[in-house]
Simulated scan of single mutants.
Amino acid sequence: MKLSPATVIAGMLLVGLTACVPTTPTPAPTTSSGTTPTPTATSSASPSDPEEVEVTAAVVVMTASALSVFGTDGSTLASVNYEMDGAAAVAQIAGALDEEPVVTPVPGDVDSPCPPATSYEFGGLELRSPGSLGSVGAFEAIVTGTTTTAGVGIETIAAQQIGASRATFEAAVGEVMPLYEPPHPQVGIDVLNPEAGVYDRIGVYANFTGGTLDFLAAPHLLGFIGSCA
């Protein structure tokens, strides 16, 4: 279709007018006076505390001066000296080990050097109150095995245990006091009063059968000869 000049001019005027019409801007969002926008929540949780690890008995160490139980974190769970009441010492050791001992009466004569006593046995560890002949404490610690009933290791100085050879034991503990020789060699270690006379020295008594450590007891007069058996 052929457009007349008048139609073309009218169309151009319409386009021009349309292009000149101003557009209304879109208003930006505003907040009401005095109102603080709520901030977006961000994660601010503090790191969770590490889970507490339960501390249990790791090893029992018997020396001439004390019987101690150390925990899996290296802490001292119990440490008793041989001058304290035997029953009280047993209670502390039992609590630290979380074990109950086997309690056995030991017969004896009240008016003799071997009075009645009570044995408290935790597997390879025994506490006897009062101690046997030659013991100088209110109670005596005796070791005959490598672990307690629940499997807690038992050691003396230098981490030596029942079953060690005499050569290994003596090399580890340092100075020893020879006591008796075969058939059952016995030595004293961890002497508390080395300046005392031979028969008055106190320490840990160690017995070897067939060249192997099989018995430890403390605190003992190392030069003492005798037995209640």
Results as ranks from 00 to 15, higher is better:
M1P: 11
S4Y: 12
P5W: 13
A6S: 14
T7Q: 10
I9Q: 11
L14W: 04
G16W: 15
C20M: 13
C20R: 02
V21C: 07
T23V: 15
T24Y: 14
T26A: 04
A28H: 10
S32R: 07
G34T: 11
T36L: 14
T38M: 09
A45P: 01
S46P: 13
S48H: 05
S48P: 00
P50W: 06
P50S: 01
V53S: 06
E54A: 14
A58S: 13
V60S: 01
T63M: 07
A64M: 08
L67C: 08
V69E: 01
V69K: 01
F70I: 12
T76C: 06
L77F: 10
A78C: 10
S79M: 12
N81M: 07
E83W: 06
E83T: 15
D85A: 13
A87S: 10
A88M: 13
A88V: 12
A89I: 14
A91G: 04
A94M: 02
G95Y: 05
G95P: 05
A96W: 05
L97D: 00
L97V: 06
V102F: 13
V103H: 04
T104Q: 15
S112K: 00
P113D: 07
A117E: 12
T118L: 11
Y120L: 08
L125G: 00
E126H: 01
P130T: 05
G137Y: 01
G137R: 00
A138G: 10
F139S: 07
E140N: 03
E140F: 05
E140R: 00
I142S: 03
T144I: 15
T146K: 08
V152Q: 00
V152G: 01
G153D: 08
A158E: 11
A159P: 04
Q160E: 14
G163V: 00
G163Y: 14
G163E: 08
A164I: 04
S165G: 12
R166P: 00
R166F: 14
R166G: 03
F169Y: 15
F169T: 08
F169I: 12
E170M: 06
E170K: 02
A171R: 15
E175V: 08
M177N: 01
M177L: 14
E181P: 09
E181M: 08
P182I: 05
P183S: 04
H184M: 14
V187D: 06
G188C: 04
L192K: 02
E195K: 09
E195N: 12
Y199T: 11
Y199M: 15
Y199Q: 03
T209L: 11
T212N: 02
F215Y: 15
L216Y: 12
P219L: 03
G223V: 11
I225V: 14
G226A: 10
C228A: 05
